[in-house]
Design a protein around this nucleic acid. Structure first.
Lengths: 205, 205, 205, 205
DNA sequence: GACTAACCGAGACGGTACGTCCCGTCTTAAG
DNA sequence: CTTAAGACGGGACGTACCGTCTCGGTTAGTC
């Protein structure tokens, strides 16, 4: 018996085969449920039902519900606080963090907390979360520091990665631990603490 | 139908009626599974099976698996880093954090990360976690600061709660985000940063 | 660390642990759906829903939907046509088969056809079906033949298994193939054909 | 919205527009999977994949997987046992059934059992199966009987449809029930039983 | 010494969601 | 107009655990 070999056809790129309506419906349904029911009550089945979509479609394009939430939040411009350019490091940092805090006090904060939590259980997602979210935000902050170096506001040899830890650390700590608010006052306190330390550091040289 | 309400005939306090062997077996089984399988794979049914205990017994004494893990970790002395007394704030802080970091690099770290994650989903447990763990640790750190004030190493009017955020924040950020290690070097960097800021602050007065 | 070994308790026999209400509800729901929707539309989820029972409960006690249907039908006395005793082989066979045909023209017939179909796909169920149903029915028929032998109506050395094939074969063939009805007339035709053959056989000796 | 009804532009008959290679690839893939995996594991998607064919193509030309199997088996000449002509009814029937039994002990048997099973669930397919397979086989057998009548081997007024039931019934019963083999011995037993009954019947007149 | 409340093991139960399989329909681009 | 490819909405699968429950057996004061 001869083998039937069908004629080969050119392939459509994977991304272009997606149904855009279904894609958006899934992301919208995810945010809606996240807001009304919370992350724990967010299920793949629930998203599929609300979006009017088969579960298959979700599993075809995402690996976990955390990945969906990450994409849904990322797509919302809000999560990506824009880089300010106010002319001084203190002003830039203050605006950057107070904007970030505002965002984190809404739905985005809930989502982002949940994603960090999920990352504790799922190493693959943790990797993705770090890459597409955490590191992107660190890079933005470091850009602000580098502008400060250019303006002579802090020493060129400063350990910027460490400074990023010193600023993002307290933010995440309050976000996750909820023992104190992420408000305007805390933004000022935080920036002031860092700027004074940096200036002192410069003075020491 | 009449409700029969039995008279309590025993004067034995609730805690003493517990089967101590079963209690310990549950905590040990929890730690064993946590270590070998991870928090996600840790289930009430799995603990009961491994401990040779009925599920009833677990549900009678704990409200969630997070609560069991919290108790299991708390019972291990390790989690409660002892307060050092080295004679100087810098030495105390350095010892305190480098000990804490060591502990967090083992099973305890895994457990504690999972509990912080769980707290994001479960407000009741978050409350318990803050009370019995987070706040206890903050109090310890603040005690060190207060000794520093007594020694004249930092100003009496310092905002110690804020300083605690500035030290625990970066620790938790690295623990949860895993972008950089919690090692001896980081302990020194962190303490040095804070001490210098504090000294500068004092000098300003 | 010492191993906690709980005290051993005597076990309750598996069957006695079953919830009788749930058990009956499942069998009743199965028959109800089988009657109204047919075997194809009969699903484990549908049975569970109709019976007000968890799927787990069904999977705990049965291996397949065919097994449930088999038990449900077996429990109905109807399926087990009683052994007649009319005094002659011809009368016994005629009553036996015409009763059987009547039963097979109702819900039981639908069920039994489906089970035979299912047996074609599932060797384990086929085994169970043969044992608890087919062979039981063959045994009953053979008992009638043996009474005939005792009465001297057929030769002692007759191949009763083969005779069973010759009588049940045409019945199943019509049941499954539906090319002609299983009615009173066919029962008489079938019995007559066999009896005459048998008598001829005896006459030959 | 207006309905667009295209004008048929081609005069080529539907059947001739088929891609013959794809058609054959589908039938071959079906038999291959049926043989290696069994009917339950045979799926439209599996056939399409193995044949290197789109699912569309299958759905365009067949209504169900049973229909494909039926065509695949029918195309194999094997299934259509040729009509013998040995000069006597006994010889013809014996050859006819022993050939049939041989065929049924191979892949064809598996396929045919599955189709009969499928027919229990799908009335439309049952109709097709009876027409193209069962009735064709009955007709063949009846032709043999008619030749017997012509030769004076059985009475002209014999109920041939009933005789067909009496011979095919036991065959199907053993095929589906698998309680005893379809072997040479059974073919002889069966033919002998019928022939002797027929002769007796003739003698009675 | 018997009684009995409370604890204990075992595990059945109703239930939710999981991730997978396959269905039959559909859309797209190539031939 | 057919075809290969495969995305889509959908339904059911069988599994894993959840938290509740009932069942007997065990243990430790109370009467």
């Amino acid at each position: 018996m001869e083998q039937y070999i069908p004629v080969s056809r050119t392939k459509i790129p994977v991304e272009e085969r997606r149904n855009k309506e279904a894609h958006q419906a899934i992301l919208q349904a995810t945010l809606a449920i996240l807001e009304s029911e919370g992350y724990r009550a967010l299920t793949i089945e629930g998203i599929a039902a609300k979006a009017g979509v088969g579960k298959t479609t979700i599993y075809r394009w995402w690996t976990s519900k955390a990945a969906i939430v990450l994409e849904a939040l990322t797509q919302q411009a809000a999560i990506l606080v824009p880089l300010p350019d106010e002319g001084s490091l203190r002003a830039d940092l203050t605006l950057f963090f107070s904007t970030a805090f505002q965002v984190l006090n809404g739905l985005t904060g809930t989502g982002v907390r949940s994603l960090m939590a999920e990352a504790q259980f799922d190493a693959a997602f943790a990797q993705e979360f770090r890459t597409t979210f955490i590191n992107a935000r660190r890079k933005a902050l470091i850009t602000l520091f580098q502008r400060g170096i250019a303006r002579g506001e802090l020493a060129g040899k400063s350990n910027l990665e460490f400074l990023a830890d010193m600023m993002y650390g307290p933010m995440w700590y309050r976000l996750l631990n909820q023992h104190a608010p992420l408000d305007e006052g805390f933004a000022h306190q935080l920036v002031d603490f860092i700027i004074r330390r940096i200036s002192f550091f410069r003075a020491e040289q």
